[in-house]
Amino acid sequence: MFKKFSKDDVHTRTNVKSSVAKTLKSKLVSQYPKLEDVIDEIIPKKVPISLYKCEDKIQLYVVNNEILFYQQFDDLIPELRLVHKYPDAFPSVQVDRGAIKFVLSGANIMCPGLTSPGAKLPEEDWPVNKIVVVYAEGKENAMAVGKLAMSINDIKTINKDTGIELYEYLNDGMWNFRD
């Protein structure tokens, strides 16, 4: 989604009203329950939230000049630097070492990369379209954020085609975005 993304893609910048900020916060907590304790740390009460509207109906939520979340449709997606700060708050999967190269050039993640010995999938079943953070074998930090293109059970059983649709990855346009 952000392979090519720069400040030219930003159309308007506005500060959101406090009421909108409140609903944003509650939506965040309902989507990522583990954020509840730190939500005021991420979005301080007195600091205004800016909303950047961009190409392709992408919206960025910016606090203190740092992108925190973005959304294209309904789901709020955390920015990678935020994921690095609160690694436990988001659902995660792990790919094997062979896949890192392709993920870092922006490819969608194929199922075999998620089911091989170096990879990790959660025990329980997650539905399609869930936002997940992608980790890599042998690395501590997250390297990408994506959306499940199949449910976890399907990935395990079918084991073919795209398993995760990639949104953001290290060193893409969003990572290098500067105002």
Partner: peptide
């Protein structure tokens, strides 16, 4: 805290996949 590389901006462990 995550240590970012000042050369390529990635977390240091990903430098080997950088340019």
């Amino acid at each position: 805290m995550v240590l970012y590389c000042e050369i390529c901006s990635l977390p240091v462990e990903f430098c080997e996949f950088g340019k």
